[in-house]
Design a protein around this nucleic acid. Structure first.
Lengths: 252, 252
DNA sequence: CCGCAGTGTGTGGCTTTCGCAACAGCCGAT
DNA sequence: ATCGGCTGTTGCGAAAGCCACACACTGCGG
């Protein structure tokens, strides 16, 4: 999911990964940037320039961050919340291609591509984002090729993810797609179950949001989740869900 | 389809676009490179270096150019033929994510990403390709930022295409997906019908190949094509197909 | 010249999946 | 307390996948 790579050192310091250290929204802008891809290798003075041009923005749930039909006006770093990348059908149906969270970036194309966006980015919950104007990013990329390389790496990861979405839609049934999606969501939150087996997913998105992620409808998701719970593949209580290791293994 | 951008001048010289000028396979390697993205803005001495390191390779139909599970060993430029990017399911089913033709490139990630490929590239017909070793490309990209920018643009286009595939699989039925695919294939060949209305597609891929492109099965493709022909949306004879303007419009 | 195998195509029938509609209960927020 | 959004459930029907078979076309070797 276009996550930044964690070094072995990072992993070692995350003894209990359920404590997410200090949230990005509480950090100084420069500190945020220097620990977020694609900027982790940028020189301090470059980080400083970016930080000075960056603006923090809050959006309500459902509000657009990038609109379909417009070119992105900057690079956005998610500080808090969750953002859906959405392709809309003409009717009421749409598909959530991917959801991004704190530390992820949106609108990577702003420095290259002045054509219209076919994909919208909508806040799934109330979010806080950091906006870096397109021209500032473009100038930075010209001075700092290392950022460019890392941005390319992000695009490659994203392409791989979307390829996975496409092939899954063609090759797997709803149950398998749903299982994979739940596992991805849980792994991105990186919370292992205390019993060390399986993963915890909290808060679980609504069933209709899950349906839009897997290209299905709410009723089928409801049925499928019930069936999976009956088979012991997951157990849910409230907005909390525990995924059985079998489920994780099946998604590998 | 990750096509290179045609300048107004190019368009003007293509009075009758059915004459494809001289085929890439007959051109000198350096000339090929200098008219193919992402190298169109590279300096002549850089083109020369790339051309000296490049190797022409032929592959039989069905042979792999990039294998699933391996990192690409170089950047490939298609000179002749057609190459499918394929995601394989475990069983007998698979999905053709995209097909690329002369002037398109494969394995763009070779300079960045040393991880395994999840997508294979298989020759759809006998092909001739040009291979630029990964290290040569990486060195070139460090010296020529403009190539880097254009490579990024190619990735953006590719990402947009694949996003379209994914959303289409989720939102449209087989008939609509098939129609869009046929139009894309015809437009890429860029052959207008002599009657100036509609497009010509020749040679038409086999029905089972079309099925793998739209995530369906051969029988359904056969039935759907018959239905579309009955409704006057297309007419086919042999390996040649004429698409009705209504079809082109519906795919817009 | 003829059969023959291999490949591509058209069709019919059956079965499953899954989307759609409708409704009822639940729960949290104002 | 009430209302709006979320969830569980059921029935139905259409889309489309799988199986099976027949037919055309090609290139091949005898």
């Amino acid at each position: 999911m276009a996550r930044r790579v964690l070094s072995p050192l990072d992993m070692a310091t995350m003894i209990d990964s359920r404590l997410p250290t200090i949230p990005l929204e509480r950090m100084a802008t420069g500190d945020v940037l220097s620990c977020v891809e694609p900027f982790t290798a940028a020189r301090p003075e470059e980080i400083e320039l970016l930080a000075q041009a960056a603006v923090r923005i809050r959006k309500a749930a459902g509000a657009p961050i990038l609109e379909e039909g417009h070119a992105p006006d900057g690079l956005y770093v998610v500080l808090r919340g969750r953002v859906n990348l959405v392709r809309g059908g003409e009717g009421h149906r749409d598909l959530i291609l991917m959801t991004v969270g704190p530390g992820d970036v949106l609108g990577e194309t702003c420095a290259f591509d002045r054509t219209h966006n076919a994909t919208a980015a909508l806040a799934a919950v109330p979010v806080e984002v950091l906006r870096i104007p397109a021209d500032v990013l473009a100038a930075h990329l010209r001075r700092e090729p290392e950022t460019m390389m890392r941005l390319m790496q992000l695009m490659i990861d994203k392409l791989r993810d979307i390829e996975g979405v496409a092939s899954s839609l063609a090759l797997h049934d709803v149950e398998e797609r749903l299982g994979r999606t739940l596992v991805r969501l849980a792994q991105r939150q990186n919370r292992r179950s205390p019993a060390s087996t399986g993963w915890i997913l909290a808060p679980v998105p609504t069933q209709s949001e899950l349906a839009r992620m897997v290209g299905s409808c709410r009723e089928t998701v409801s049925r499928t989740l019930s069936a999976m719970a009956r088979d012991g593949l997951l157990s849910s209580s409230g907005r909390r869900m525990i995924l059985d290791p079998r489920l994780v293994e099946a998604a590998a």
